[in-house]
């Protein structure tokens, strides 16, 4: 069993939806996570806030992030247990994040530290 991180990328992180829409997404996200947790395959996760976000550049310049020249913003991540990347991809497909046009979920296997990844 491997662990995979599902990383949510939003095309338009600055756009604010209606309260009702946000509540719908909230419910869908909770149900999606419960579905994974119900199979005992949910490890953890978190949302990433836009408050107090900065980007530190190589020359020490700090700018207000995450917006700027990058169009995509990271909205959050969850870590799941899966036998294969295919299974992790199936979990990712259920993410409500994908309802947003241009949004993506990146699936990455976590390095185990045993030298066999």
């Amino acid at each position: 069993m491997n662990e995979f991180m599902l990383i949510f990328r939003h095309q338009d992180g600055g756009k604010i939806a209606s309260p009702e829409q946000m509540q719908i997404w909230m419910k869908q996200t909770m149900e999606w996570i419960e579905g994974i947790a119900g199979q005992n395959k949910f490890v953890g996760g978190n949302g990433l806030q836009f408050d107090d976000s900065k980007v530190v550049r190589h020359n020490g310049v700090v700018t207000n992030g995450p917006f700027g020249e990058i169009k995509e913003t990271l909205g959050g991540y969850v870590i799941v247990k899966a036998d294969s990347v295919e299974e992790a991809v199936e979990f990712a497909k259920g993410s409500p994040v994908l309802q947003g046009d241009g949004n993506t979920v990146e699936v990455r296997k976590l390095a185990k530290g045993d030298g066999v990844h």
């Binding site: 604010i16 309260p19 946000m22 509540q23 997404w25 909230m26 996200t29 909770m30 996570i33 953890g44 996760g45 978190n46 949302g47 990433l48 806030q49 836009f50 408050d51 909205g75 959050g76 969850v78």
Partner: peptide, 17 residues
């Protein structure tokens, strides 16, 4: 309006987890 919306955005980023 913005402050109220951001409040729910914060909930959306927190409550599911």
């Amino acid at each position: 309006e913005d402050i109220a919306s951001e409040t729910f955005l914060k909930a959306l980023e927190t409550w599911p987890y």
